[in-house]
């Protein structure tokens, strides 16, 4: 079932679907102006996602992974959040320079998002059918009846049993996993080219998580969507991602394809993360701990933001910010000693 691990360029994309680069984020900067000061939440993030590709954005809380997604979707709370620089290009056009109307058109049809907490993302007073159908009515000008039929089809596509009946039920009548399926149906209703999934399975049990990840993978393949999977779960990432971007303190510290990253991480933070998770397939494992705490975004350490916690920090680290250095065709690392890490045996 989940045996698709080939990251090659998607073969024949569906008709009318451009293959290639869909979404590019370049040097994005976002800050939150709070009464305690300016929190630099995102400090120059670059990533892109192609059609049919799964990019996993990995990071702990406060790393800026969710804020990046909110900025892309244009649902950043302003204030306190302000975009202070960079570009978000969708099909080559900078979304940050678009009018509100243009951006709204992209939302849902171009880029859609699945949230972690499906219960609060769905409106409790409307049936799920109504909520899905609403998009068809508003955006596609369908009649009430047609929209409802389409909504039932959507529920069927996300494999909700008895879709025809359940379309008339309210969100609280669905179990956690089913609710997340509804959420996915809703975000896919307008056939987006890019789907951003923000911790889609964090609130779910493992057996349900596996079902949802399968479903997402299947739908993505069918539709050749670009999928941005935002998560902190290194296990899920290993199962589904093609490429991985690791974030720390609002920056990407390492980017690589999934095999390279797990085989030979090229940033001390990634190494720390990978060795700090207990593995179900290992016995007698020692856990590495990353000393200290993630930095306050109000006061990001000078130079490399990871240096106070880094076991291999050198005098240069607090002084110079390491750029995201390209190490190969698919990988890059923002560490002064990245080359040494890659070349170790």
């Amino acid at each position: 079932m989940s045996n698709v691990y080939v990251a090659d360029q998607p073969s024949a994309a569906r008709e009318g679907r451009p293959s290639g680069r869909l979404l590019e984020v370049e040097d994005l900067r976002v800050e939150f102006r709070t009464r305690d000061g300016v929190a630099k939440v995102i400090n120059g993030v670059n990533y892109h996602v192609d059609a049919g590709e799964t990019l996993a954005v990995l990071g702990e809380s406060g790393s800026g992974k969710s804020v990046t997604a909110q900025t892309i979707m244009g649902i950043l709370d302003t204030p306190p959040g302000f975009v202070t620089g960079g570009e978000i290009r969708f099909h080559g056009k900078d979304m940050l320079k678009m009018s509100a109307e243009e951006r709204r058109r992209i939302r849902g049809e171009g880029i859609a998002m699945v949230f972690q907490d499906a219960l609060s993302a769905l409106n409790p007073v409307f049936t799920v059918g109504f909520q899905i159908a609403e998009q068809f009515r508003v955006r596609r000008g369908m009649s009430r009846r047609d929209a409802k039929i389409r909504a039932a089809e959507m529920l069927d596509q996300v494999k909700i049993p008895n879709a025809k009946q359940r379309v008339n039920e309210y969100p609280h009548q669905f179990s956690g996993g089913m609710r997340q399926r509804v959420m996915i149906a809703m975000s896919l209703a307008l056939d987006p080219e890019v789907l951003i999934a923000d911790e889609p399975t964090t609130a779910l049990d493992v057996t349900v998580q596996a079902q949802i990840m399968d479903l997402l993978g299947e739908l993505q393949r069918e539709r050749q969507m670009g999928l941005i999977l935002i998560t902190h779960d290194l296990g899920v990432v290993a199962d589904v991602a093609d490429r991985i971007a690791v974030m720390y303190a609002g920056r990407i510290v390492e980017e690589a394809n999934v095999y390279e990253l797990y085989a030979k991480p090229a940033h001390p933070y990634t190494i720390g993360l990978l060795e700090s998770i207990p593995r179900i397939d290992e016995k007698g494992q020692q856990l590495r701990t990353i000393r200290g705490l993630p930095p306050s975004l109000l006061k990001i350490p000078s130079g490399c933001p990871f240096h106070p916690r880094c076991p291999m920090a050198q005098p240069v680290c607090p002084e110079k910010l390491p750029p995201l250095l390209q190490l190969g065709p698919t990988r890059a690392s923002a560490c002064h000693f990245a080359e040494e890490l890659v070349n170790r045996d």
Partner: peptide, 27 residues
Amino acid sequence: QALLSAVPVPDPNSRKNKAIIRLTGDV
């Protein structure tokens, strides 16, 4: 068995030989 098979292993190479036992329905 189903529970164990569903736990994601942080190793992309395990994708090949992984057989998840699918449970149907809800608890």
